[in-house]
């Protein structure tokens, strides 16, 4: 496991990232508002670690992951990879950097071209980004198939001839083809059965060790994220509300949303009655029209007056622990009138 005590090198630095999707209406397709899918998010990812990104459906996890890889032209903010700013690079300039950052998708079925053989699929990025000969490519594909535990003799088969877990291995092999440093894994196990999920997670862990990979692991499965992540960021309605090392976050969650989320996970033990289980009332508001103040204030069991007026700053409340909640940090009373534009912590 990644050692957080040694001086970690920052590989990815995200600051003030915003990704808005415009909403158009009427016959003139007027711009009437925005879906604030990612709304001012800042965090670092250390080299060699797995940062887990959790949160409920629609909170902006995938958008965040895709924005970091610049699969979108972002609305605002900065993204640095190994010190290089890529937030404002045009897509043409990004092409050169693509090999270093890859993505593994949720649906192994939909993300693989059904007309290509396994060899074609895994070899596609090699064809596009390298000048390898056919024989070299084949050798590399075989090497990758070994690494992800696929039998080489399957290289001429098509995706539909594989099981879900095997298809996910094909997707992972393709993501590894160009020796990336950083991989965004977007719900890589969500479509798989419980007994197959463990196989894929173990594989991702082995590959990380072997190749020194850095992962952003997106999932709504809180127990799997606990297992695989070194640090965990919790998103709610476009914002990261808490970020902490795995042990601290699961052992002593600070943000009221993190607490509710963790207490809602059913435990596979009939003897365990979770005492203060927090049942949140109501539904998640729309990201097109988030509430004023703290975006969790409409459902928060610990809500205070100030929460309805002011957006809490995302700040480091203990070394390495970040929280965006008025309950932590400065006492709420002192923060009445002065409208402060928050600088987000990096």
């Amino acid at each position: 496991m990644f050692d957080l005590t040694t001086k970690a090198r920052t590989l990815i630095r995200v600051s003030g990232l915003k990704m808005y999707f415009p909403i158009h209406a009427g016959i003139f397709r007027r711009h009437v508002g925005d879906v604030k899918a990612v709304d001012d998010v800042s965090f670092d990812i250390y080299e060699g670690e797995t940062l887990g990104l959790v949160g409920e459906s629609g909170c902006g996890k995938s958008t965040c992951g895709r924005a970091i890889l610049r699969l979108y032209d972002i609305t605002a903010g900065s993204i640095q990879i190994d010190g290089q700013e890529i937030g404002d690079l045009p897509q043409s300039a990004l092409r050169k950097l693509r090999p270093t950052m890859q993505m593994v998708f949720q649906d192994p079925q939909a993300s693989l071209n059904p007309r290509l053989t396994v060899e074609g699929i895994i070899g596609e990025p090699l064809l596009e980004h390298t000048s390898m000969s056919r024989a070299e490519r084949k050798a590399r594909v075989h090497e990758l198939m070994d690494a992800v535990g696929l039998n080489r003799s399957f290289s001429d088969r098509y995706p539909h001839e594989f099981s879900g877990g095997q298809r996910q291995r094909i997707g992972i092999a393709r993501a590894l083809a160009l020796n990336p440093k950083f991989i965004v894994c977007d719900e890589p196990i969500a479509a798989l059965d419980v007994s197959i999920q463990a196989q894929v997670v173990n594989l991702l862990e082995d590959l990380q060790k072997e190749f020194g990979l850095t992962y952003l692991f997106i999932s709504h499965d809180l127990s799997m994220v606990r297992h695989i992540a070194d640090r965990v960021a919790v998103m709610y309605l476009g914002k990261v509300v808490e970020l902490a090392p795995e042990e601290a976050l699961y052992g002593e969650p600070l943000h009221p949303y993190t607490r509710a989320l963790l207490s809602a996970v059913p435990e596979p033990d009939p003897d365990l009655t979770i005492e203060d289980r927090i049942i949140l009332k109501g539904d998640v508001p729309s990201p097109a029209n988030p509430p004023a103040g703290c975006n969790f204030c409409t459902r928060c069991p610990a809500v205070m007056d100030i929460c309805q007026r002011e957006d809490p700053e995302f700040r480091e409340v203990q070394p390495g622990r970040f929280v965006a909640c008025h309950r932590y940090g400065q006492s709420a009373e002192n923060k009445t009138e002065n409208e402060n534009e928050n600088e987000t912590a990096a």
Partner: peptide
């Protein structure tokens, strides 16, 4: 989602 599932359970 888990928080909605908790409501239903």
């Amino acid at each position: 989602d888990v928080t909605i599932q908790a409501q239903i359970l």
